[in-house]
Amino acid sequence: MQTCFINSPLGITKLVGDKNGVSIISILEEGEVSTTISNELKEAVTQLQDYFEGNRTNFTFKLNPKGTDFQQRVWQELLNITFGKTMSYLELSKKLGDVKAIRAVASANGKNPLWIVIPCHRVIGKDGSLTGYAGGLWRKKWLLEHENPTSQQSLF
């Protein structure tokens, strides 16, 4: 497995992966930025930088997250949430076929190992509130605003 650290507007981003794909993307409060990036991680780094610069709305590099079958199902459904849109935990549970699984869905969402790329930040409370985010609610808010900026109305 290869590891690198890049700078992002939200902190140091850690990427871990190999020829089978990227397994982990996480955020750190502090750390050293890598001076070299392995071939296995170059495309992921480029695409994340494009995302933060506002030039990318989806990711195409190979993913290889580790998790249970249920977690994999939840993460796969998260990939279907359109850029700039949100979905409630209840809606996500319905899409997975079991409204009563809302707590399990929320738990799987919280264990997402691929920050931003599997867009767990797009899942909100049914009342529209920003609930739970492993990276901190301020980061969730930043990501949602980054993906759906409010444009100033023209006064004239």
Score class of each variant (00 low, 15 high):
Arg122Met: 03
Ile118Lys: 01
Thr68Gln: 05
Gly128Glu: 09
Ile81Thr: 06
Gly135Trp: 02
Lys126Cys: 07
Gly125His: 07
Phe83Gln: 10
Lys85Ser: 14
Cys120Tyr: 06
Leu78Arg: 04
Ile81Ala: 05
Val99Phe: 09
Ile116His: 01
Gly132Lys: 03
Lys85Phe: 06
Lys126Glu: 15
Pro119Trp: 01
Thr150His: 13
Gly67Phe: 05
Gly136Val: 08
Trp138Val: 15
Ser93Tyr: 01
Lys100Gly: 13
Asp69Asn: 14
Leu114Tyr: 03
Ile118Asp: 00
Leu92Glu: 03
Trp138Leu: 12
Pro149Ile: 10
Ala104Tyr: 11
Gly136Met: 06
Pro119Ile: 00
Asn148Thr: 12
Thr86Val: 13
Ile124Lys: 04
Leu143Thr: 08
Ser88Glu: 05
Pro119Glu: 02
Ala134Met: 11
Lys141Gln: 12
Asn64Leu: 08
Ile116Asp: 00
Ser129Met: 02
Leu144Gly: 02
Pro149Asn: 09
Phe70Val: 10
His121Ile: 01
Leu96Cys: 07
Gly84Lys: 06
Ser107Ile: 14
Pro119Thr: 02
Glu145Gly: 12
Thr82His: 07
His146Leu: 08
Gly125Cys: 05
Ile124Ala: 04
Met87Glu: 14
Gln153Gly: 14
Ser93Gly: 04
Ile81Leu: 07
Gln152Tyr: 13
Val117Gly: 00
Leu130Val: 09
